[in-house]
């Protein structure tokens, strides 16, 4: 259901008012689960992340948010720099 919802997001919709509860990934606390909504980083990085399992609609878990971002993505540990984590908008799903 959520997937369907997210897939139906186009460029014009994304530019509209922010979704209720959506926030940058960087704002998520340790232990938080979140669904990726939108990636505002450069195309190369976004594509790399998508291939590694972090794509619009995917769920990630924040393993450590103290220093950059350590994520659980499809069972693998992915470390993202703080700047990149700020460029990814997510919908927190609670811990």
């Amino acid at each position: 259901m959520l997937r369907q919802l997210l897939r139906r997001r186009t460029e014009t919709k994304a530019a509209a008012a922010p979704r209720c509860g959506a926030c940058p990934l960087a704002a998520c606390a340790t232990g938080c689960r979140a669904a990726v909504l939108q990636m505002e980083c450069a195309g190369d990085e976004a594509n790399r992340l998508r291939n590694m399992g972090l794509f619009e609609g995917a769920c990630v878990t924040v393993v450590d948010s103290r220093n950059g971002m350590l994520l659980d993505v499809k069972g693998a540990r992915l470390a993202l720099g703080a700047a990149l984590a700020s460029a990814i908008r997510v919908l927190p799903l609670g811990s």
Partner: peptide, 10 residues
């Protein structure tokens, strides 16, 4: 500088 993306293996 390109952003940091790094897999941390077990």
């Amino acid at each position: 500088v390109r952003p940091m993306i790094m897999e941390l293996p077990p």
